[in-house]
Design a protein around this nucleic acid. Structure first.
Lengths: 233, 233
DNA sequence: TCTGTTAGATTGTGGAACGATTCAACAGAT
DNA sequence: ATCTGTTGAATCGTTCCACAATCTAACAGA
């Protein structure tokens, strides 16, 4: 037997199926904000535009529905969900559940989330007037890095889905970010008790960080709905 | 205007689509353990047996894949996943994240999870030699009741998916349960700090409860794999 | 024993068809 | 004038069929 032959270092090729590729393309479209929330995705139109069968498009949307990025209205197809302030609050409840526990797991295990540190340096390298999207991505990566450091596959899966919704929500709100330097400092502070092994402090800080974020977002919703009422009146 | 007419108490009718009904049927099959883990679900066979089109069956499986109840192997269709001890440990990491946070939300809000209390009384009403499944369901309902009491839609959604995996795992293991009376007592104890408003104690107890459960399950896996090796040797 | 080769089964995808549902426009009735 | 049906176009949900790509196992030959 040649069971002991070393693993060939060849990259495992992964042919992406049509529906998978479609799902990825759609996800990108949605998360980049190129699809107005509330937009109805007509099957015939999209299938033709993407050069695929209607069935494949349907399968792709089914995936995104599972991720919370699309919503199906019976007999009316799928559309990009419009998130309310309540949704944001709800999203952040789940987010806190996942992240505070991840922080706990990581800190207790003594794992140092290197990728998170990298994200912080990226943040601090940004100029003063960096567009909000350039701030969002390192920010997301920072938090994802902590989740990944927890080593739980399912925690990561749940968080990945949730992060999609978070980005969707941010894309709809275009929140005003603080100075990148401030953001970087706050995240670095977040990291400190994690590497020093102070579980309680790490959890407390993370929760405060998230509470502050959701507060700002909900406030932003308030402003937006006010101006919306103005527009209607 | 008759906008102020009271809500008619008529039950909202919900015509279930074919794929939805199929997904439900499949879910039940899997969770009841009527489909051996590792079983390959051949499309033609199942579509014919269920009297639906192959496409509809495909759409249904896509839903269950999103819930973690089926796994897709490229070009080999879908099959019931076989959970390892590592999977169980992983499942319980996520479970702890969700439940400990739910306990926190519920306790802080001062909400009394009545449905959970009902589940406890159901448990205590069981006879000594109740089959494990009769114990599992009130147990699951107890925990789901706490999740629901948290009032977070997404927390519930995440937990619902996870609970499916838990049940799948239990179905594969057929764990030996303690006396129903003991189980009832432990859960009642779990409820106590929640209603009295002691957040820290409530979280601590819940975590201990879950830790103990996962420990037992992993141990059970050890025994099972031993006997499996015996069988092969 | 190892290596093609071949045939059958199954999946992945596309395409046509058709009933059911939605929606808007419009006509008729109270 | 408001409410109630009707009609028709657009779209969805589902089925059936076709076919290339892939997998699997059996088999023949070196």
């Amino acid at each position: 037997m040649t069971e002991s032959n070393e693993q060939n270092p060849i990259e495992r090729i992964t042919p992406v199926s049509t529906v998978e590729a479609t799902a990825n393309a759609l996800r990108e479209l949605i998360l980049d904000g190129n699809l107005e929330p509330g937009t109805r995705l007509r099957e015939h139109e999209f299938a033709e535009r993407l050069g695929i069968a209607r069935h494949s498009f349907r399968a792709a949307t089914q995936i995104l529905i599972g991720e919370g990025l699309l919503r199906r209205e019976p007999n009316r197809g799928v559309e990009v969900p419009i998130l309310s302030a309540a949704d944001v609050a709800d999203i952040y409840k789940l987010r806190a559940a996942l992240e505070v526990e991840a922080v706990r797991l990581v800190t207790e295990a003594g794992v140092v989330p290197v990728a998170a540190q990298r994200a912080v340096t990226e943040l601090s390298a940004l100029g003063e007037n960096a567009p909000w999207r350039d701030v969002v991505w390192p920010d997301q990566r920072f938090h994802m890095a902590i989740i990944e450091a927890s080593g739980s596959e399912r925690l990561k899966r749940a968080y990945t889905d949730l992060q999609s919704e978070i980005v969707l929500c941010l894309a709809q709100l275009r929140p005003a970010y603080d100075q990148p330097a401030e953001v970087a400092a706050e995240h670095e502070e977040l990291l400190e008790p994690i590497v020093s092994g102070d579980v309680a402090a790490a959890q407390r800080l993370m929760r405060a960080h998230l509470d502050e974020a959701v507060e700002n977002l909900v406030e932003l919703y308030g402003e937006r709905s006010e101006s919306a009422e103005d527009g209607q009146a």
